[in-house]
Design a binder for these strands. Structure first.
Lengths: 139, 139
DNA sequence: TTTTGTGCAAAAGGTTTGCATACGA
DNA sequence: TCGTATGCAAACCTTTTGCACAAAA
């Protein structure tokens, strides 16, 4: 989109991604809407603003952004995947009722239990997903 | 299949699920193969043993088992869903290389951090997923 | 100029559904 | 018997792919 968003340009440069308008817009959308949109929601919005944007390109962009580590896919039971700008570590909260996915601040695991449980596996990363009722649904 | 498996019959009775051969076999398969099979893998195996088993019925059975809380769906980024008999709480480990999903023993989260992070949301459950290299791939 | 991305439409999974029939309780 | 599950095939939804053209570095 219009506002230059130097952080995106810088991130693209850092990971060696070409700056195409479509790819830029996908990243921009994810940063502006931290609501874990589906590929289709991203497509609808970008295509409405600029009809040149195709569904395939949204998927392609998401893939390159994921491969570059700037975006993460949040696998959702049964439903379409959701996407998440991943510039800083965090966990997720999924509302049982409205299905919304919210970011929650990162926190670490208790080292003792974790080490006991992982045995000799080499753990690169972990992700905590909490389920329950979000603030709006919970009252 | 053949061996009566009283634990399954009992679980079905407990949650009020009819005992059909197909449904029973799906549950039995998941208990015998704690490898987080896809619906299609379950279908292939059951249909090979008994050609009367259809794909739709495998999906239907998985759905009723999930609704009854006996089975859990493990959402996998990009790929087909995997299914997991969920008679006791546990977490998951996903191998980056071979894609295998392993159960790891349940452990709790540090209460302080968790409460800070969830704020006023009502958390019903949580799930930790660890990523890395499994024992076989790690050396 | 070289390489990579884009758009389109078609294809490929994976999962759900409608309907007549079969089966469990 | 009554109500629910099954099997089949078709429908559906999401995602990927092949190819010719366009744009980035």
């Amino acid at each position: 989109m219009q506002p230059t968003r130097p952080e995106i340009e810088e991130a693209f440069r850092r990971v060696g991604l070409r700056r195409t308008p479509q790819r830029f817009d996908v990243m921009d959308f994810l940063l502006r809407h931290p609501v874990h949109a589906t590929a289709d929601q991203i497509y609808e919005e970008l295509n409405r603003r600029d009809p040149r944007v195709s569904r395939a390109t949204v998927y392609n962009s998401l893939r390159s952004l994921m491969e570059a580590g700037l975006v993460r896919e949040v696998a959702m039971e049964g439903k379409a995947a959701r996407f998440d700008a991943y510039l800083r570590r965090h966990h997720h909260f999924v509302c049982d009722r409205c299905g919304k996915v919210e970011d929650v601040d990162f926190f670490d695991l208790p080292a003792r239990e974790r080490d006991q449980v992982i045995g000799t596996r080499r753990v690169r990363e972990f992700q905590v997903t909490l389920y329950g009722l979000c603030e709006a649904c919970g009252r």
